[in-house]
C-alpha cells in the first residue's frame, strides 16, 4: 500500500478524543524524567584548552623555550658585523623544523602509555581533546615560527619558503609516521625522516638564499596548502574509529 493511500486512510478514520488527564500525566512524567537527569556542566573552549596547558602544552613549551633561546642568540649574533657571513636563512629553516619536532614526543603518547582507552571513555570527546591539545601546543608553535621568521628576515616569500614550508612539511611527515608506523618505532622513524628533511632543507635554503634556487610563490603556497590539508586529515584520522581500533590492538 502506498504511503499516500495510508495517509488518506488514516485521515478518514475518526480520531479518538484527547484525554486531558493522559496528557497531563505524560507531561508530568516527562518533566520528572528530565529533572532527574544530572545537569551537564557546560565546558567552555577556554576551560578545555586551559586545562590542557599544564599536562600537554607545558612540557612542549619547555622544549620550545630552549629552542627559542637558541634562536634569539643566533639572531643576536646575526646582527653583528660577522653576521652577514653566517648561514642565517639555513639556520632559520633548521629552527622551523626543530620547532615542528618539539611536539614529536607527544604524538601518539596516549597509545604508547596505554591511556587511550581511559581518555576515550572520559566526557571530553577525542576530537575535542585533540583540538584543544593542538590549540594549546599551537601557541608555542606560533611563537617559535614567528621567531624563526624574524631570524630569516627577507620578504614574505623568503619566510614562506624558508620557514613555513619546512615547518609544515616536518609536522605533517612526523605526524604521519606516528599514526601509521608501529607504536614503538614511530618516534625513531619520525626523527630519522625529520633529520633527513632538515639536512635537505639546509642545502636548499642555502641555495635559495644565494639565488641559485628559484621557487615561485604559487608553488610555495601550494606546498603549504598541501601540508596543511595533510595535517588536517591526519588529525581527523587520529580521532577516527579505525585508528582507535588499531590502537586497541584489533585487526592486527
Amino acid at each position: 500500500m502506498k504511503s499516500r493511500d495510508i495517509k488518506s486512510a488514516l485521515r478518514s478514520m475518526p480520531a479518538p478524543a484527547v484525554d486531558a488527564g493522559h496528557v497531563a500525566s505524560t507531561l508530568a512524567l516527562c518533566r520528572a524524567g528530565y529533572c532527574a537527569r544530572r545537569p551537564l556542566r557546560p565546558l567552555t573552549v577556554r576551560e578545555l584548552i586551559g586545562r590542557q596547558l599544564r599536562f600537554t602544552a607545558l612540557p612542549v613549551w619547555l622544549l620550545q623555550g630552549a629552542l627559542l633561546s637558541v634562536i634569539c642568540l643566533v639572531m643576536g649574533v646575526s646582527r653583528t658585523v660577522d653576521g652577514a657571513a653566517l648561514p642565517i636563512p639555513a639556520c632559520a629553516s633548521l629552527s622551523a623544523e626543530l620547532a615542528a619536532l618539539t611536539a614529536l614526543p607527544f604524538y601518539g603518547r596516549a597509545r604508547r602509555y596505554g591511556m587511550s582507552e581511559v581518555e576515550a571513555a572520559a566526557r571530553v570527546s577525542r576530537t575535542r581533546l585533540a583540538l584543544s591539545r593542538m590549540a594549546a601546543v599551537g601557541v608555542g608553535d606560533v611563537v617559535c615560527v614567528s621567531a624563526a621568521a624574524l631570524l630569516c628576515g627577507g620578504g614574505w616569500l623568503d619566510v614562506l619558503v624558508l620557514v613555513a614550508v619546512p615547518f609544515l612539511l616536518t609536522s605533517a611527515a612526523a605526524l604521519a609516521v606516528s599514526l601509521l608506523a608501529e607504536r614503538d618505532s614511530s618516534p625513531f622513524i619520525a626523527v630519522g625522516l625529520s633529520a633527513a628533511l632538515a639536512a635537505l632543507y639546509w642545502t636548499l635554503a642555502q641555495r635559495f638564499a644565494q639565488g641559485l634556487l628559484r621557487v615561485s610563490p604559487s608553488a610555495a603556497l601550494a606546498v603549504c596548502a598541501a601540508a596543511v590539508l595533510a595535517l588536517a586529515w591526519e588529525y581527523r584520522f587520529s580521532t577516527s574509529e579505525k585508528h582507535i581500533e588499531k590502537e586497541l590492538g584489533y585487526g592486527t
Binding site: R38, L40, F55, Y113, G114, M115, E117, A122, R123, S125
Partner: peptide, 25 residues
C-alpha cells in the same frame, strides 16, 4: 554523547598512565 560519558565511569583491563604522573597529577 557527552551526557552518557558524563555519567559513566570506566576502568580498562590494561591500566596505563603517563610516566611522569604522580597520583595527584
Amino acid at each position: 554523547g557527552e551526557a552518557w560519558r558524563d555519567i559513566l565511569g570506566y576502568l580498562p583491563q590494561n591500566f596505563g598512565y603517563y610516566p611522569e604522573f604522580t597520583v595527584a597529577d
